[in-house]
Simulated scan of single mutants.
Amino acid sequence: MASNSELATKFKIVSDEAIKALKGNGSIEREDVLREARRVVQQLQAPVDYALRMVWAPVELAAAATACEMGIFSSLAHGNKPMTTEEIARSSKGGDVLLVQRIIQALAAHGLVDQTDERHYLANDITRDFTTPGRHGSAMTQMFSMRAYSALPWFLRKNGYKSPASLRECCWQEVYEGDGTIWEWMKEYPEMGRYFNDYMAAARPYTSSALGEEFPFGRLFEGSKKDDVVFVDVGGGHGHQAVSLRKSFPKERGRFILQDLPQVVDGKVLDDVEVMAHDMMKEQPVKGARAYYFRGVLHDHDDPVCRDFLQQIVKVMSRDSRLLVHDVIIDDFMPSVQSVRQDLGLMCLFAGRERTKAQMKALLESVGLAVVETYKAGPEKWSITEARLS
């Protein structure tokens, strides 16, 4: 049997090999190694180690968000060389050397920047990632969302430990006074809305590969003609998914339509994708399309609300039409950390939910649909649930 020292050496060798081979790629093998690495860390930790890491995690997020706001990440990334605290402070908001020192040492301790010696700090890949609008937006979005997360134990105690079912009666209202929703609050505070939009735009590459690789659209669009509507992106926001898929199917294969609320799509022009203002709670104007696609829409709502807008789709589907729901599916065994994080986060912010395969099936069947197949590109990826008229 190998000694503890020998085991530690072997582990380091294998770990270094895995990092060299897999870092930065989106392979299934990389996801498998990450899951195993998380399991190893959790099993090796003493309970107190795990508890300390978990309960102090909000402070790490607060330090990262503050560094984004102050420009500390940008200062380091643009300097492209080891910098002292004083140098970082000169190019950061406020210019307070003591404050910068306290933030930068927290960042270094958590691996968000590298410390090269007692006085100097250097940007790494994580530092540079935090200079992007998407990462800045994600940090600030989680900061204002964290107030709602913190209300969860008290909200559930007050309501008798029942899952929230209304957008106007969830944890959000516990900390942001009144019955206003998170969407209304972001309209009142447009800077926060911009952070959220930057976060959402950047989140897509991390949760999806190219849409055409995740579902057999060629089969669904088979025999289509130029005037046929083959793809309707309902509630599709800026149209990233429609534009991505359009590149794989020329105009001769049919029409693509992006639908969202007027305030989202007014003035928007996309290459070879029609833009249509539409409220999904109202009658669907496009009838008999090959695919009605919802990405990240159902998970914002509890079942009764989903049934309201899904029924509008069911009314206009033909026998050849398919409903495609692109959301997280929570695995019944060993679900991913991110899937359950998102589930509880959605519950706090919107009374929304991520669903298991059985819960998604039950929801779709309740409006007269039958699940054909569920497609998943990888362990940490979102799933596409295909459904037809039953």
Rank of each mutant, 00 (worst) to 15 (best):
E6S: 04
F11G: 04
L22G: 07
S27D: 08
Q43P: 01
A46R: 15
E60D: 15
A62G: 10
A67T: 13
C68L: 11
C68Q: 06
H78V: 15
S92A: 13
G95K: 00
A108C: 09
A109D: 05
T116K: 11
A123S: 14
N124C: 06
D125P: 03
P133M: 10
G134M: 07
M140L: 13
R147V: 14
A148F: 01
A148L: 00
Y149M: 12
W154T: 13
K158S: 15
N159S: 08
S166V: 00
W172V: 09
E177T: 11
G178L: 12
G180D: 03
I182C: 08
W183A: 13
W185N: 07
K187W: 06
F196M: 14
Y206S: 07
T207R: 12
S208G: 01
P216H: 05
L220T: 12
V229K: 03
V229S: 06
V230A: 10
G239K: 12
H240Q: 14
S244W: 04
L245R: 02
K247S: 10
E252M: 08
R253I: 06
I257A: 01
L258M: 10
Q263R: 08
V265D: 02
D272S: 14
H278C: 11
D279V: 11
M281C: 10
K287F: 04
G288M: 02
R290P: 00
Y292N: 06
F294K: 08
V297S: 02
P304G: 10
R307T: 10
D308F: 03
L310N: 01
S318N: 02
L324Y: 00
D327R: 06
V328P: 09
V328W: 07
I329K: 07
V340Y: 08
Q359F: 01
L363Q: 03
L363P: 01
V371Y: 01
E380R: 11
K381Y: 14
K381Q: 11
